[in-house]
Design a protein around this nucleic acid. Structure first.
Lengths: 100, 100
DNA sequence: CCGCTTGGTTAGTGAGAACTTACCGTTCGT
DNA sequence: ACGAACGGTAAGTTCTCACTAACCAAGCGG
């Protein structure tokens, strides 16, 4: 899921979809400097990660951003804010001394 | 930055820091199933990404989570919500037909 | 009905990155 | 001051993965 966002090309695809709206595979291949099969493979990964959704439109497949996957990333990120973060930090810094 | 989060081991390190608070390198090496040098290398990457911060404590280096990098990720993520996302989507779905 | 277009899949290759082993500098404890 | 431990670095190996090229299936247009 975060692995899917780790690749620059995949991020470029998402950025393109964000800026230009839903697009076909060929449409993405024009804007992203990789071959069309590469786009397909990345879209597959992004699809499994829940970051994009696709809808058949005749011979074309229109891809759009799926908010579900992004929500999961956001939740994961929020854990780091909700937890007693710096509190814990400053605490252990002065306490210190046990195991770690 | 998101590349730093793409690696499972690095995420494991961050999770460990989140749960157990700041820790030394050796302390992390005990909890994460990789060798100590590997931890050092990952911490270097995480440091460059602004995701962790370290403070010398004698011979030990205490690492803690840095909120700055996480904020950048959050900002990047928010772009996908603020933009006219599904509006754009449904629009083009019915309009369609031009170039992409 | 036939050709053209669109898109997904497979095989193969190359590059990059993660991991371990070995080494060295640094700092605390005795 | 010497030994021990903690941590960062270098070199080398291995493995994963991103990419291209070639092939195949499906749907629209003349």
């Amino acid at each position: 899921m975060l692995d899917a966002l780790g690749d620059p090309t995949r991020r470029a695809i998402l950025e393109t979809l964000r800026r230009s709206g839903p697009s076909s595979v060929a449409g993405l291949a024009e804007r992203v400097p990789v071959s069309r099969p590469a786009i397909s493979q990345h879209l597959k990964v992004l699809g499994l990660a829940g970051l994009v959704d696709h809808e058949p439109r005749g011979t074309r497949n229109i891809y759009r951003i799926e908010r579900g996957g992004l929500a999961e990333v956001r939740d994961w990120l929020d854990q780091f804010w909700d937890d007693a973060l710096d509190a814990f930090a400053e605490h252990v810094r002065s306490t210190e001394g046990s195991s770690e």
